[in-house]
Design a protein around this nucleic acid. Sequence first.
DNA 1: CTGTTATGAATGAACG
DNA 2: CGTTCATTCATAACAG
Lengths: 181, 181
Amino acid sequence: MDEYSSGFCIRASRGGNGGGTGTKCGRWNPTSEQVKLLTELFRSGLRTPSTDQIQKISSQLSFYGKIESKNVFYWFQNHKARERQKRRRVFHVDDEPNNHHPLQHPKLTPTKYYGDDINDVVEQERVIETLQLFPLNNLSEAHSERLRLFTDNCKENGPFAYNLGPREMDHPTLDLRLSFV
Amino acid sequence: MDEYSSGFCIRASRGGNGGGTGTKCGRWNPTSEQVKLLTELFRSGLRTPSTDQIQKISSQLSFYGKIESKNVFYWFQNHKARERQKRRRVFHVDDEPNNHHPLQHPKLTPTKYYGDDINDVVEQERVIETLQLFPLNNLSEAHSERLRLFTDNCKENGPFAYNLGPREMDHPTLDLRLSFV
DNA sequence: CTGTTATGAATGAACG
DNA sequence: CGTTCATTCATAACAG
Protein backbone atom coordinates (compact mmCIF):
# COMPACT_ATOMS: atom_id res chain seq x y z
CA MET A 1 0.00 0.00 0.00
CA ASP A 2 0.99 3.53 -0.14
CA GLU A 3 0.31 4.80 3.18
CA TYR A 4 3.62 6.44 3.10
CA SER A 5 2.96 8.77 0.29
CA SER A 6 4.67 11.77 1.66
CA GLY A 7 7.14 9.73 3.51
CA PHE A 8 8.26 11.03 6.75
CA CYS A 9 10.54 13.89 7.02
CA ILE A 10 9.41 15.27 10.18
CA ARG A 11 12.25 14.85 12.40
CA ALA A 12 11.99 15.56 15.99
CA SER A 13 14.90 16.78 17.90
CA ARG A 14 15.38 13.65 19.77
CA GLY A 15 18.96 14.11 20.65
CA GLY A 16 18.07 17.48 21.82
CA ASN A 17 20.83 19.42 20.25
CA GLY A 18 19.65 21.85 17.73
CA GLY A 19 18.40 19.06 15.67
CA GLY A 20 18.52 21.33 12.75
CA THR A 21 21.06 19.03 11.29
CA GLY A 22 18.91 16.05 10.81
CA THR A 23 17.02 17.58 8.03
CA LYS A 24 17.50 14.43 6.15
CA CYS A 25 15.21 11.63 6.68
CA GLY A 26 15.11 8.18 5.39
CA ARG A 27 14.35 6.16 8.33
CA TRP A 28 12.08 6.57 11.21
CA ASN A 29 13.30 9.00 13.71
CA PRO A 30 11.36 8.61 16.88
CA THR A 31 10.44 11.61 18.88
CA SER A 32 11.34 11.90 22.49
CA GLU A 33 7.85 11.07 23.51
CA GLN A 34 7.75 8.01 21.40
CA VAL A 35 11.00 6.80 22.77
CA LYS A 36 9.92 7.47 26.24
CA LEU A 37 6.74 5.55 25.89
CA LEU A 38 8.36 2.67 24.17
CA THR A 39 10.90 2.53 26.89
CA GLU A 40 8.23 2.54 29.49
CA LEU A 41 6.53 -0.32 27.84
CA PHE A 42 9.74 -2.18 27.65
CA ARG A 43 10.50 -1.57 31.22
CA SER A 44 7.08 -2.73 32.08
CA GLY A 45 8.08 -5.99 30.73
CA LEU A 46 6.92 -5.95 27.19
CA ARG A 47 9.53 -7.69 25.23
CA THR A 48 7.95 -9.16 22.20
CA PRO A 49 4.69 -7.49 21.43
CA SER A 50 2.26 -9.37 19.33
CA THR A 51 0.97 -8.04 16.11
CA ASP A 52 -2.03 -6.63 17.81
CA GLN A 53 -0.03 -4.94 20.40
CA ILE A 54 2.27 -3.53 17.86
CA GLN A 55 -0.65 -2.14 16.01
CA LYS A 56 -2.05 -0.51 19.04
CA ILE A 57 1.18 0.90 20.18
CA SER A 58 1.87 2.21 16.78
CA SER A 59 -1.49 3.86 16.63
CA GLN A 60 -1.03 5.52 19.92
CA LEU A 61 2.41 6.71 19.20
CA SER A 62 1.44 8.07 15.86
CA PHE A 63 0.00 10.88 17.82
CA TYR A 64 3.46 12.10 18.53
CA GLY A 65 4.76 11.75 15.07
CA LYS A 66 5.08 9.57 12.09
CA ILE A 67 5.45 5.99 12.95
CA GLU A 68 4.67 2.64 11.49
CA SER A 69 4.09 -0.76 12.90
CA LYS A 70 7.33 -2.03 11.69
CA ASN A 71 9.10 0.68 13.58
CA VAL A 72 7.63 -0.56 16.77
CA PHE A 73 8.43 -4.05 15.86
CA TYR A 74 12.02 -3.27 15.17
CA TRP A 75 12.34 -1.12 18.17
CA PHE A 76 11.46 -3.85 20.53
CA GLN A 77 13.58 -6.30 18.76
CA ASN A 78 16.58 -4.07 18.85
CA HIS A 79 16.05 -2.97 22.35
CA LYS A 80 15.88 -6.45 23.62
CA ALA A 81 18.79 -7.68 21.64
CA ARG A 82 20.91 -4.76 22.60
CA GLU A 83 20.16 -5.18 26.19
CA ARG A 84 21.42 -8.68 26.07
CA GLN A 85 24.45 -7.88 24.07
CA LYS A 86 25.42 -5.11 26.31
CA ARG A 87 25.23 -7.34 29.25
CA ARG A 88 27.17 -9.96 27.55
CA ARG A 89 30.03 -7.73 26.85
CA VAL A 90 30.40 -6.13 30.17
CA PHE A 91 31.97 -9.04 31.77
CA HIS A 92 35.63 -8.53 32.05
CA VAL A 93 37.39 -5.26 31.94
CA ASP A 94 40.02 -6.07 34.46
CA ASP A 95 41.35 -9.42 33.71
CA GLU A 96 44.70 -8.62 32.47
CA PRO A 97 47.12 -11.45 32.88
CA ASN A 98 49.84 -8.96 33.31
CA ASN A 99 49.20 -6.63 36.03
CA HIS A 100 52.31 -4.75 35.41
CA HIS A 101 51.42 -1.34 34.45
CA PRO A 102 54.44 0.71 33.86
CA LEU A 103 51.99 3.35 33.12
CA GLN A 104 50.58 5.16 35.98
CA HIS A 105 46.87 5.51 35.91
CA PRO A 106 45.65 8.17 38.19
CA LYS A 107 42.20 6.88 37.85
CA LEU A 108 41.83 3.62 36.19
CA THR A 109 38.83 1.52 36.72
CA PRO A 110 36.42 2.83 34.28
CA THR A 111 34.11 0.06 34.95
CA LYS A 112 31.44 2.52 34.49
CA TYR A 113 29.20 1.66 31.66
CA TYR A 114 26.88 4.43 31.08
CA GLY A 115 24.76 3.64 34.00
CA ASP A 116 23.43 0.69 32.23
CA ASP A 117 20.44 -0.02 34.16
CA ILE A 118 19.74 -3.51 33.22
CA ASN A 119 16.96 -4.29 35.47
CA ASP A 120 15.72 -7.24 33.72
CA VAL A 121 12.14 -7.95 34.22
CA VAL A 122 12.21 -11.55 33.50
CA GLU A 123 9.48 -12.56 35.75
CA GLN A 124 6.79 -10.46 34.40
CA GLU A 125 4.91 -12.33 31.86
CA ARG A 126 1.74 -10.68 32.83
CA VAL A 127 2.75 -7.53 31.20
CA ILE A 128 -0.66 -7.15 29.90
CA GLU A 129 -1.89 -5.67 33.05
CA THR A 130 1.27 -3.89 33.65
CA LEU A 131 0.94 -2.18 30.39
CA GLN A 132 -1.34 0.25 31.94
CA LEU A 133 1.53 2.04 33.33
CA PHE A 134 0.01 5.25 32.41
CA PRO A 135 -1.96 6.44 35.27
CA LEU A 136 -4.67 8.10 33.48
CA ASN A 137 -7.19 8.26 36.09
CA ASN A 138 -8.95 5.27 36.65
CA LEU A 139 -10.31 5.13 33.40
CA SER A 140 -13.67 4.27 32.65
CA GLU A 141 -12.96 1.27 30.80
CA ALA A 142 -11.27 -0.21 33.73
CA HIS A 143 -9.68 -3.03 32.00
CA SER A 144 -10.61 -6.12 30.28
CA GLU A 145 -10.01 -9.05 32.40
CA ARG A 146 -10.48 -11.47 29.66
CA LEU A 147 -7.63 -10.05 27.75
CA ARG A 148 -6.71 -13.53 27.08
CA LEU A 149 -3.29 -14.65 27.95
CA PHE A 150 -0.85 -13.05 25.79
CA THR A 151 1.28 -16.02 25.85
CA ASP A 152 3.37 -14.67 23.13
CA ASN A 153 6.26 -15.34 25.33
CA CYS A 154 5.99 -18.99 24.76
CA LYS A 155 4.34 -18.79 21.47
CA GLU A 156 5.58 -21.28 19.03
CA ASN A 157 6.12 -18.66 16.47
CA GLY A 158 8.43 -20.79 14.55
CA PRO A 159 7.18 -22.40 11.43
CA PHE A 160 10.67 -23.34 10.71
CA ALA A 161 12.59 -25.43 13.06
CA TYR A 162 15.71 -23.90 11.81
CA ASN A 163 18.65 -25.40 13.50
CA LEU A 164 21.38 -23.65 11.84
CA GLY A 165 23.31 -24.38 14.90
CA PRO A 166 25.98 -21.86 15.43
CA ARG A 167 29.12 -23.81 14.94
CA GLU A 168 30.16 -23.35 18.48
CA MET A 169 33.52 -22.01 17.73
CA ASP A 170 36.08 -24.40 18.90
CA HIS A 171 37.77 -22.93 21.85
CA PRO A 172 39.34 -20.02 20.24
CA THR A 173 42.94 -20.52 20.86
CA LEU A 174 43.12 -16.86 20.79
CA ASP A 175 46.65 -15.91 20.83
CA LEU A 176 46.12 -12.42 20.05
CA ARG A 177 49.43 -11.31 21.27
CA LEU A 178 49.65 -7.81 20.17
CA SER A 179 53.32 -7.82 20.45
CA PHE A 180 54.22 -6.68 17.07
CA VAL A 181 54.64 -3.21 18.17
CA MET B 1 49.83 12.23 18.38
CA ASP B 2 47.40 12.33 21.06
CA GLU B 3 48.36 11.01 24.35
CA TYR B 4 45.60 12.49 26.29
CA SER B 5 44.45 10.78 29.31
CA SER B 6 41.00 11.48 28.22
CA GLY B 7 38.37 11.68 30.83
CA PHE B 8 35.09 10.09 30.97
CA CYS B 9 31.92 11.88 31.39
CA ILE B 10 29.23 9.45 31.87
CA ARG B 11 26.29 11.26 30.69
CA ALA B 12 22.99 10.28 29.39
CA SER B 13 22.39 11.23 25.87
CA ARG B 14 19.01 10.29 24.75
CA GLY B 15 15.82 10.42 26.51
CA GLY B 16 16.30 14.09 26.73
CA ASN B 17 12.71 14.65 26.04
CA GLY B 18 11.67 18.14 26.38
CA GLY B 19 13.92 20.40 28.29
CA GLY B 20 16.92 18.19 28.63
CA THR B 21 19.43 18.87 26.02
CA GLY B 22 21.04 15.66 25.13
CA THR B 23 24.48 16.84 25.77
CA LYS B 24 26.86 14.05 25.44
CA CYS B 25 30.29 14.37 26.71
CA GLY B 26 33.31 12.29 27.01
CA ARG B 27 34.26 9.66 24.64
CA TRP B 28 37.06 7.28 24.33
CA ASN B 29 40.12 8.69 22.82
CA PRO B 30 42.50 6.00 21.72
CA THR B 31 46.19 6.41 22.14
CA SER B 32 48.58 6.05 19.29
CA GLU B 33 49.54 2.61 20.37
CA GLN B 34 46.00 1.51 20.60
CA VAL B 35 45.19 2.80 17.20
CA LYS B 36 48.27 1.26 15.78
CA LEU B 37 47.46 -2.12 17.15
CA LEU B 38 43.88 -1.97 16.14
CA THR B 39 44.93 -1.01 12.69
CA GLU B 40 47.33 -3.86 12.54
CA LEU B 41 44.63 -6.25 13.47
CA PHE B 42 42.37 -4.81 10.92
CA ARG B 43 44.96 -4.95 8.27
CA SER B 44 45.73 -8.50 9.02
CA GLY B 45 42.19 -9.30 8.23
CA LEU B 46 40.24 -8.97 11.38
CA ARG B 47 37.01 -7.36 10.51
CA THR B 48 34.41 -8.53 12.91
CA PRO B 49 36.00 -9.78 16.07
CA SER B 50 34.00 -12.06 18.23
CA THR B 51 33.22 -11.21 21.75
CA ASP B 52 36.14 -13.16 22.99
CA GLN B 53 38.45 -11.46 20.66
CA ILE B 54 37.09 -8.12 21.58
CA GLN B 55 37.65 -8.81 25.19
CA LYS B 56 41.16 -9.93 24.66
CA ILE B 57 42.01 -7.05 22.49
CA SER B 58 40.50 -4.73 24.95
CA SER B 59 42.48 -6.20 27.77
CA GLN B 60 45.67 -5.99 25.88
CA LEU B 61 45.11 -2.48 24.78
CA SER B 62 44.19 -1.38 28.22
CA PHE B 63 47.84 -1.54 28.84
CA TYR B 64 48.26 1.54 26.82
CA GLY B 65 45.42 3.40 28.28
CA LYS B 66 41.85 3.33 29.19
CA ILE B 67 39.72 1.30 26.91
CA GLU B 68 36.64 -0.77 27.03
CA SER B 69 35.27 -3.61 25.05
CA LYS B 70 32.72 -1.52 23.38
CA ASN B 71 35.39 0.81 22.16
CA VAL B 72 37.02 -2.01 20.35
CA PHE B 73 33.75 -3.15 19.01
CA TYR B 74 32.84 0.24 17.72
CA TRP B 75 36.23 0.79 16.34
CA PHE B 76 35.99 -2.21 14.12
CA GLN B 77 32.47 -1.47 13.16
CA ASN B 78 33.31 2.02 12.17
CA HIS B 79 36.48 1.12 10.45
CA LYS B 80 34.84 -1.46 8.34
CA ALA B 81 31.87 0.66 7.56
CA ARG B 82 34.11 3.48 6.60
CA GLU B 83 36.02 1.42 4.19
CA ARG B 84 32.92 0.33 2.47
CA GLN B 85 31.45 3.72 2.47
CA LYS B 86 34.42 5.19 0.82
CA ARG B 87 34.63 2.37 -1.55
CA ARG B 88 31.09 2.98 -2.58
CA ARG B 89 31.83 6.50 -3.44
CA VAL B 90 34.60 5.62 -5.73
CA PHE B 91 32.65 2.95 -7.43
CA HIS B 92 29.38 4.50 -8.21
CA VAL B 93 30.48 8.02 -8.04
CA ASP B 94 27.24 9.47 -9.17
CA ASP B 95 25.20 7.20 -11.27
CA GLU B 96 21.74 8.35 -11.84
CA PRO B 97 19.91 10.09 -9.08
CA ASN B 98 16.93 7.93 -9.69
CA ASN B 99 16.19 7.34 -6.17
CA HIS B 100 12.76 5.98 -6.38
CA HIS B 101 12.78 3.10 -4.12
CA PRO B 102 9.62 1.20 -3.37
CA LEU B 103 9.78 2.33 0.16
CA GLN B 104 10.04 -0.05 2.94
CA HIS B 105 7.55 -2.52 4.14
CA PRO B 106 6.75 -3.77 7.54
CA LYS B 107 8.39 -7.01 6.86
CA LEU B 108 8.96 -7.23 3.22
CA THR B 109 11.75 -5.60 1.48
CA PRO B 110 12.17 -6.78 -2.02
CA THR B 111 14.65 -4.08 -2.54
CA LYS B 112 17.25 -6.35 -1.29
CA TYR B 113 20.21 -5.53 -3.31
CA TYR B 114 23.16 -5.41 -1.11
CA GLY B 115 24.53 -8.84 -1.21
CA ASP B 116 27.73 -7.36 -0.07
CA ASP B 117 30.74 -8.92 -1.50
CA ILE B 118 32.96 -6.05 -1.98
CA ASN B 119 34.24 -5.79 1.45
CA ASP B 120 36.65 -8.57 1.39
CA VAL B 121 40.09 -7.68 2.24
CA VAL B 122 42.72 -8.43 -0.25
CA GLU B 123 45.91 -8.13 1.54
CA GLN B 124 45.75 -10.09 4.64
CA GLU B 125 48.00 -12.67 3.27
CA ARG B 126 50.66 -11.76 5.62
CA VAL B 127 48.71 -12.38 8.67
CA ILE B 128 51.16 -11.88 11.35
CA GLU B 129 52.03 -15.05 13.04
CA THR B 130 50.93 -13.64 16.27
CA LEU B 131 47.53 -13.02 14.98
CA GLN B 132 46.28 -16.48 14.66
CA LEU B 133 43.13 -15.87 16.45
CA PHE B 134 41.00 -17.21 13.74
CA PRO B 135 39.54 -20.52 14.57
CA LEU B 136 39.08 -21.61 11.02
CA ASN B 137 36.86 -24.53 11.32
CA ASN B 138 38.60 -27.69 10.57
CA LEU B 139 35.66 -29.41 9.15
CA SER B 140 36.90 -28.45 5.82
CA GLU B 141 35.76 -31.38 3.81
CA ALA B 142 37.14 -30.92 0.42
CA HIS B 143 35.49 -28.06 -1.22
CA SER B 144 36.27 -25.99 1.72
CA GLU B 145 39.68 -25.20 0.64
CA ARG B 146 38.81 -21.74 -0.21
CA LEU B 147 37.37 -20.82 3.15
CA ARG B 148 37.35 -17.16 3.37
CA LEU B 149 39.86 -17.10 6.12
CA PHE B 150 37.99 -14.66 8.18
CA THR B 151 35.29 -13.25 6.16
CA ASP B 152 32.42 -13.36 8.46
CA ASN B 153 32.55 -16.47 10.41
CA CYS B 154 32.42 -14.76 13.65
CA LYS B 155 29.45 -14.45 15.78
CA GLU B 156 28.68 -12.77 18.93
CA ASN B 157 28.88 -9.18 18.67
CA GLY B 158 26.96 -6.19 19.54
CA PRO B 159 27.09 -2.74 20.75
CA PHE B 160 25.55 -1.52 23.82
CA ALA B 161 23.70 1.57 23.78
CA TYR B 162 21.36 3.71 25.57
CA ASN B 163 21.44 4.34 29.19
CA LEU B 164 19.12 4.60 32.01
CA GLY B 165 15.69 5.85 31.49
CA PRO B 166 15.02 9.27 32.75
CA ARG B 167 12.27 9.28 35.21
CA GLU B 168 10.61 12.25 33.81
CA MET B 169 7.09 11.56 34.72
CA ASP B 170 5.58 14.54 33.26
CA HIS B 171 3.82 13.52 30.19
CA PRO B 172 1.13 15.95 29.41
CA THR B 173 -1.61 13.94 27.95
CA LEU B 174 -0.56 10.45 27.57
CA ASP B 175 -3.10 8.38 25.91
CA LEU B 176 -1.14 5.33 25.44
CA ARG B 177 -3.68 3.05 26.94
CA LEU B 178 -3.04 -0.16 25.26
CA SER B 179 -6.15 -1.74 26.32
CA PHE B 180 -6.21 -4.99 24.65
CA VAL B 181 -9.88 -5.26 24.36
C1' DC C 1 38.16 31.81 18.80
C1' DT C 2 35.74 29.70 14.81
C1' DG C 3 34.92 26.59 11.02
C1' DT C 4 36.19 21.94 9.29
C1' DT C 5 37.52 17.28 9.64
C1' DA C 6 38.03 12.79 11.73
C1' DT C 7 36.00 9.46 14.24
C1' DG C 8 33.57 7.55 18.40
C1' DA C 9 28.88 6.38 19.52
C1' DA C 10 24.05 5.32 18.74
C1' DT C 11 20.40 3.08 16.59
C1' DG C 12 17.08 1.95 12.85
C1' DA C 13 16.79 -1.70 9.57
C1' DA C 14 17.50 -6.14 7.99
C1' DC C 15 19.90 -10.80 7.21
C1' DG C 16 20.59 -15.77 8.06
C1' DC D 1 16.81 -14.24 17.81
C1' DG D 2 21.48 -12.83 17.53
C1' DT D 3 24.25 -10.58 14.45
C1' DT D 4 25.60 -7.27 10.99
C1' DC D 5 25.03 -3.16 7.89
C1' DA D 6 24.11 1.65 6.99
C1' DT D 7 23.29 6.24 8.39
C1' DT D 8 23.27 9.65 11.47
C1' DC D 9 24.69 12.35 15.55
C1' DA D 10 28.10 14.31 18.60
C1' DT D 11 32.51 15.69 19.84
C1' DA D 12 37.65 15.58 20.15
C1' DA D 13 41.19 17.04 17.24
C1' DC D 14 42.89 20.16 14.14
C1' DA D 15 43.58 24.01 10.67
C1' DG D 16 42.98 28.94 9.91
